[in-house]
């Protein structure tokens, strides 16, 4: 029993190597880390630039944020983007010149902000109550997003691709007559992909959150990784046994990657709220990973109970499909 399980593991590991699966993981890791560190962390939205046309320098004490322009054409062209604000101070009273943004409230704020720069008025700075800086928030946010996407996609895809290869080679048919339990057949794959996912989660977290923050969130992240990885691998197992060929599977995969995860990210990462998203199982899995990344309390007992129940159900379904497929193959 122990020996046969070990040889199953060895076989699956060799298949993982030969299918360049590990290469895919390393490639994704590099791609994501470069994107996070070179692009995402640096994205910011600047405050509205304010341009002032005041050749006579009639207004004193203006804020250093204001950019002076020399003539009306310049003022018009700088303020044509629906974001920047212009102040024309050539008349008796300053006049605001801008292109509407499409939102009245935003235009109101733009006008008020531009006017406030003309006077030296002071303001009590806002009270800051959060723990994260903008950079740290961006890092946590995007790490949770990529981790979720990769775990959902790779667990699903990796397991399926090795299983399809075995299907083509007739391994499933051979297993039908071998004295190895089908549960072991499923287990050995689950364990390998779980290990790969854990390594990926570890590296992605530590590389992008840094050693200190990375290690403090790691326990929570690894727990969520285990849950998501097992669920996705079982779904992948079921689909791979059920669908006749890899082509169909890959189309399903693209569909999954784009359409199932997009609403989850939209609700999870922006201020959009849709109540129906609560019925979307992936949303809860994503929020668990996100909360883990932000060191916030993750899920209630009921969440874990549902996860365990679904893992058991998925396992039974996968087991049953495998039995049926083996019977079909003779």
């Amino acid at each position: 029993m122990g020996y046969s399980f070990f040889s199953l593991l060895k076989k699956d590991f060799t298949m993982m190597l030969s299918s360049k699966f590990l290469l895919l993981i390393v490639g994704s890791l590099i791609l994501y880390s470069l994107y996070i560190n070179l692009v995402y962390v640096r994205t910011d939205q600047a405050i509205y630039p304010v341009y002032l046309l005041d050749p006579a320098e009639s207004i004193e004490n203006i804020s250093g944020q204001i950019i002076r322009v020399d003539n009306m054409e310049e003022l018009q062209s700088h303020t044509s983007d629906g974001y920047a604000v212009g102040i024309d101070a050539t008349g008796a009273a300053p006049k605001i010149i801008m292109t509407a943004s499409g939102l009245d409230s935003t235009d109101h704020t733009r006008t008020a902000y531009a006017l406030s720069l003309l006077s030296p008025g002071q303001s009590t700075p806002a009270e800051v109550i959060g723990q994260n800086s903008k950079e740290m928030k961006s890092r946590r946010e995007i790490t949770s997003e990529f981790l979720f996407f990769e775990l959902a996609a790779v667990g699903f895809l990796g397991l399926a691709s090795t299983l399809f290869e075995e299907k083509y080679m007739g391994v499933i048919r051979i297993h039908g007559v071998m004295p190895i339990s089908k549960s072991l057949f499923i287990f050995s794959k689950l364990i390998l992909f779980l290990l790969a996912d854990l390594v990926f989660a570890f590296l992605l977290t530590v590389i992008n959150l840094g050693l200190e923050a990375g290690f403090s969130v790691l326990p929570a992240i690894l727990v969520q990784t285990v849950i998501l990885s097992i669920i996705m691998a079982l779904v992948g197992f079921f689909c791979a046994v059920w669908l006749p060929d890899f082509k169909q599977f890959s189309l399903l995969y693209i569909v999954f990657a784009i359409f199932i995860t997009t609403p989850v990210f939209l609700v999870g990462q922006t201020s959009i709220t849709w109540n129906w998203i609560n019925y979307h199982p992936m949303y809860h899995l994503f929020m668990a990973i996100k909360n883990a990344c932000f060191e916030m309390p993750v899920g209630e007992p009921v969440y874990y109970i549902i996860c365990v129940v679904s893992i058991v159900v998925l396992f039974l379904v996968a087991h049953k499909t495998l039995t049926r497929e083996m019977a079909k193959e003779g």
């Binding site: 939205q45 600047a46 509205y48 109550i129 959060g130 723990q131 994260n132 903008k134 928030k137």
Partner: peptide
């Protein structure tokens, strides 16, 4: 008085 979390965009 306003309250921020400190992780907002500059805007």
């Amino acid at each position: 008085k306003s309250i921020l979390s400190g992780d907002e965009f500059q805007l």
